[in-house]
Design a protein around this nucleic acid. Structure first.
Length: 304
DNA sequence: ACCAGTCAAGGAAGC
DNA sequence: GCTTCCTTGACTGGT
């Protein structure tokens, strides 16, 4: 039976036992004197890296073969009034040491690592500040991946959406113009995921035609987004088109189920799976976006 | 200790 | 054209 599940950011089992990530808002950060605020932020960040480590170990223990690192491990750093790299942090050496421990853990038992930078980041914006902010965010992800010793290729994908709707060729030109400017640590890992806007552009069909085929970039297949915006493709055809776009790499796809309201499938994620996904080629990993997180995976591991 | 409201992002969608 | 919504778990402040 298919068993290549990827845990999305959080283990509910761990959080129920009090192991949680910490965050920090800019509002709060800006209220404190800078030195004090930075010290608190550093403490929280180190805590988060340790929590990510524990979560990866949890995956190893529970037969979960991949892990999506949360994009909130390092709060605020990319904020326009903070603008720090991980390496700028006063406790950088502690963070490096903790990342080295994660590296060792990953060497003992392989866990595939990926990330899904915030859905608000965009390479398609007409506003250059917005694009710059997005690139800074991506650079932070690449910096972390490098610290974790992750390969600079699609085995450790950074997955984003193309957010803008409208004139496809204009948007693609914009996105690819910005793509060329990205450092290799981002570019060699960056993949694009189908989205589900009403009558939206970014179905699997259009991503394959306008992004993957001309520019040789893998496409992430998301089951739920596809069922909301199939764009004339069956689930099987969309899955296999996306599958083939990964070439020699093993694809990492997203699995979730939507809540049905008044007989209409919505994009809201269910807590727990009701059905087992059809995996049209078993050589994939499925990142489980159901809200029960690891507990949803346990259900899938036990064939519901 | 608990609860409700807030936070953070940029664009879509709805008035 | 303006407002609301989307998304998420943790933070925050009031009780």
């Amino acid at each position: 039976m298919f068993n290549n599940w990827s845990l999305c950011c959080i283990s509910k089992t761990l959080s129920d036992s009090g192991v949680n990530f910490k965050s920090m808002t800019y509002t709060n950060f800006s209220k404190m004197p800078r030195t004090e605020a930075l010290r608190e932020l550093c403490t929280r960040i180190l805590h988060n890296v340790k929590t990510a480590h524990r979560t990866i170990q949890f995956c190893q223990q529970r037969g979960i073969s991949a892990y999506r690192v949360s994009s909130n491990l390092f709060p605020i750093l990319t904020h326009t009034d903070v603008r720090m790299k991980i390496s700028d942090l006063p406790n950088y050496s502690d963070i490096v040491a903790e990342c080295d421990k994660i590296k060792q853990t990953l060497l003992q038992k392989h866990i595939r690592i990926s990330s899904h930078p915030s859905e608000y980041i965009t390479l398609s914006s007409e506003d250059s500040n917005t694009v710059d902010n997005s690139i800074r965010d991506l650079e932070q992800h690449a910096e972390l991946f490098d610290l974790l010793g992750l390969p600079e290729d699609y085995n450790s994908p950074l997955n984003i959406h193309i957010r803008k709707e409208g004139d496809i060729s204009g948007i693609v030109k914009k996105v690819m113009g910005n793509y060329e400017k990205l450092c290799s640590g981002i570019r060699k890992r960056l993949v694009f995921e189908n989205n589900d806007n009403k009558n939206g552009n970014w179905s699997i069909r259009n991503l394959i035609r306008h992004i993957s085929e001309p520019y040789d970039i893998p496409i992430t297949f998301d089951y739920l987004h596809h069922s909301i915006l199939p764009d004339g493709l069956s689930e099987k055809d969309a899955f296999l088109l996306a599958y083939n776009s990964w070439k020699e790499y093993t694809p990492l796809f997203h699995y979730s189920e939507g809540i049905v309201e008044n007989g209409i499938l919505t994009r809201k994620h269910r807590d727990s799976p009701e059905s087992f996904p059809i995996v049209y080629n078993p050589n994939v990993y499925l990142d489980v976006e159901l809200k029960d997180k690891c507990q949803a995976i346990f259900k899938l591991q036990n064939n519901l």
